[in-house]
Amino acid sequence: MTAYPMTACSLVANRVSAGYGDTDILRGLDLAVPPGKITAIVGANACGKSTLLRTMSRLISPRQGQVLLDGKSIHRIPSRELARTLGLLPQSPVAPEGITVADLVSRGRHPHQGLFSRWTRKDDEAVAAALVATKTVALAERPVDELSGGQRQRVWIAMALAQQTEILLLDEPTTFLDISHQIEVLDLLTDLNRARGTTVVMVLHDLNLAARYADHLVAMAGGRLHVSGKPEDVLTEQHVREVFGLESRIIVDPTSGRPIMLPIGRHRMVTEQVSTIPPAG
């Protein structure tokens, strides 16, 4: 077996402002990612979740503030070295036409290889371990573009695993997956966190899945961190109202003991409210 890094690195965003063009999407955001834990980031559309992930993985340079990895600004760390510690799975990545699963997963070894260094046994081991962990061994020789959405997402996660980073950032890893595949992916990330101590940071849309799988839940609003902490402290009726502008009820999930948010709309209530649209005719 390959030895995996057991000492977790710390990742901290310090008063970060960042965005595209002239507009700042993140506005002085502070975030300390707890090492060795699973962090889920939630928030309304366009609140800067993806921007935060992209800034923390150096795809965007912050206009102000900095992102620190073990106390060192990530902009001072050489790209290859950073990619050996910090992995990122972008939102819906696209595989090159016709590439096989094994080939795509082995691309995760890129930061571990120098200009002239050959493919080593360690690389093979990392790829094999990643395929086994994601249950994609049987798919190894299949072209990625022939796979189903759930299989494809597992393959991309396998690529990120082959990178063997201590921290893994994932931008909406469950998008476009049906519920069973969503659970499968989140279980897989939990296994990874438990077995290797990998720090997982993911952006999730589904509040209930976020609350169930995260050790640390982060709610963002307007480019800032609104509230963070244990899921039961973060997923409250008041916070849902503040972050999403939505009335809700929180109950406890009998399976996981974690909070579940039930949205309250204007319709379909046991005591039906009056519709605001006048009836036809």
């Binding site: 950073l82 990619a83 990545p93 090159p96 691309r107 995760g108 290889q113």
Partner: peptide
């Protein structure tokens, strides 16, 4: 000298950057 990094660009700019490609 850039052949490997060029090949990684096939995965898209974001993924390539995450793999340590400048």
């Amino acid at each position: 000298s850039r052949a490997r990094d060029l090949d990684a660009l096939k995965l898209g700019d974001d993924t390539a950057a995450a793999l340590g490609v400048g």
